[in-house]
Write a protein that binds this DNA or RNA. Structure first.
Lengths: 340, 340
DNA sequence: GTCCCGATCGGGAGCGCTCCCGGAAATTCG
DNA sequence: CGAATTTCCGGGAGCGCTCCCGATCGGGAC
């Protein structure tokens, strides 16, 4: 069919022009060994003159994979896509992928139809591997990909025992250390604003909060917990709610920096001083944590390392498919600033 | 080579199982006409049983295009990627593409190397068309794509006479009407916070500001202009600067809603009441404009329409490549809220 | 019963590339 | 200088699909 874009020369035409065989040109563009230097130059000149670009469809049909991986964002509410978390992780993955020659393709999956379409795309061999982020509890996509034998790595997990490779931060430990820090500074009435509780990471952070209280012999109160969704807005609302239920509270752990920023605003509006009256701790340590008023004490997630680990695992799995799942949990670290 | 994922049946195997020929199976999966209903069912059952998924590389090699378009974000500072503008436009494009069966692939181009890699990817035929956003003044990518004969549509433009298809909002008119509105309400000392001036959209909004002042017979003062970069942070800084230079100012036009939000914070911190002392107008009309304190008067950009127009133009150009560039400028609209 | 005409269907050709076998050319060695 | 290696190189086979030409099959008209 004539849909081929006009003026796109083929490898064969390059070969003809350079006066060599197809195989030689192929060897040159894949810079394989075993080509005489002079021949290589002749071919390169022909490529130059013709403006030749290899047809990637043909290349992957012939068996060489696609040199592309997909980063899938499963999130029906795509506005969350504007959260710093995503741009940070995208940047980190991009860096980690930079010197592998792989192309990172970001895809939004907002509905069942879009999931289906992506699945066809991936199973159709358009990408060699898949990175999944912001996966919610009941999401079937990871399993579908696994069943299709596509190398897949998740950022975070859906539950405690996950049958797929993932990289995650130590959310429980991070939250626990944050709350312990508050307790050590004499706070006794500590609330928490969680993330969406259908996400395991949010559950873990809540569990860390509970653990720390338990360890200190304090009782856990349901009313000290307000659910948010990682956004600033939800932080504002949840903080207002908590303040109303527990005017006496003197410490808050928010499930993300953005949520914490929202909480700070509400506290200021309510006339509470931070950290004098109420200490606030965030989670993530994004750049914004340094610019809040006051700067935010927060639990640092090593996003750079997370990105690198995801890429490493994915590449390994692409290299030689294994039946074993790999799980990597990265340590978090409390960064103390002025808000606590 | 053995890189083919194991257990991926081919069309031929489906044909064998269904007891029909290759052509028939092809007709079924492309739901073409001319297949008897009973045959179609037999084939579909075979597809089902084998878990067959067409190999997309083979399909596009055989001439059928790729059913994918790339959305390229050219932005060395990828943190800007977290601006609501991007998530809004991505959502809008995704919606516009939803019922075409096309896959949207987002790509970040942060460096020359990444641009080169993307170019190879696109010229290699991995996508049928390209959407470009946040293109800066000297960016060569659009021309390179045009030269490669790839259907391409830009969001915004690099200059007044652009040799590529684009969709843009009426930035000059929008800014002009905003300033005129301020003048009509008796403001006389009006400043502006611009976007990055290497972007044409930012220049246009500045021009609209100048135009409106000129129309009202007011003189344009360089010192009433502070350059930002569309972010909230730059809004805070620029506002502080303007306030220092011109304590008497009573109106501000910001080049984006986020910038305006930042400006509002600085004004509040400086003890200025909005709109009593200083009126503020934003640009974009993102959801956040309704949640600022006070809600923001702003110039609405019809992002939904912009996305739809971009897709329409792209699809038309993919359908039958034309030599003509299409330019679409969409009307903006002043949305008056409490900040002016 | 015969002929003709759609409606269906089978399968050859070919998309542009990589892999790899076997031959040609260049070297080295005895 | 001829034989044994190496080093290079050409081109056949094949990846899985779509397109399309021509064959086959059913009926209806005569």
């Amino acid at each position: 069919m004539g849909r081929r874009r006009p003026g796109t020369p083929t490898l064969e035409e390059v070969a003809a022009r350079a006066g060599v065989g197809r195989g030689t040109v192929s060897r040159v563009i894949n810079n394989a060994t075993g080509v005489k230097e002079s021949t290589r130059h002749a071919v390169q000149r022909a490529i130059e003159e013709l403006g030749y670009v290899p047809n990637l469809a043909a290349r992957s049909l012939a068996g060489r994979g696609t040199d592309a991986v997909a980063l899938v964002l499963t999130e029906p509410d795509w506005r969350l896509f504007a959260e710093p978390f995503f741009s940070e992780i995208v940047g980190s993955l991009g860096d980690a992928l930079a010197d592998t020659g792989m192309q990172l393709m970001l895809t939004l999956v907002r509905s069942g139809a879009e999931r289906q379409r992506f699945l066809e795309y991936a199973r159709g061999g358009r990408v060699d591997g898949v990175l999944l982020m912001s996966v919610h509890a009941g999401d079937p996509l990871p399993d579908m990909l696994a069943e299709a034998r596509l190398p897949t790595v998740m950022l975070g997990r859906r539950s405690g025992d996950e049958s797929i490779s993932y990289v995650d931060a130590d959310n429980v430990g991070g939250a626990r250390s944050a709350v312990s820090h508050l307790l050590a500074r004499g706070r006794r009435s500590i609330a928490t604003i969680t993330g969406p509780l259908d996400m395991y990471a949010a559950q873990c952070r809540l569990r860390g909060y509970q653990d720390a209280l338990g360890l200190a012999g304090l009782k856990y109160q349901q009313t000290m917990v307000a659910e948010g969704d990682f956004t600033e807005d939800s932080g504002r609302r949840a903080m207002a709610e908590l303040l109303q239920r527990h005017p006496e509270l003197d410490g808050v752990l928010a499930a993300s920096d953005t949520t914490a920023a929202g909480a700070l605003q509400t506290l200021r509006a309510a006339g509470r001083r931070v950290p004098d009256d109420v200490a606030v701790i965030g989670f993530d340590d994004f750049p914004l944590a340094q610019r809040t008023e006051p700067p935010l004490t927060t639990v640092r997630q090593p996003l750079e390392d997370i990105g690198r680990a995801m890429i490493r695992i994915l590449l390994e799995d692409m290299e030689e498919p294994s039946v074993a799942w790999r799980h990597v949990i990265l340590r978090t670290e409390l960064v103390v600033r002025a808000s606590s």
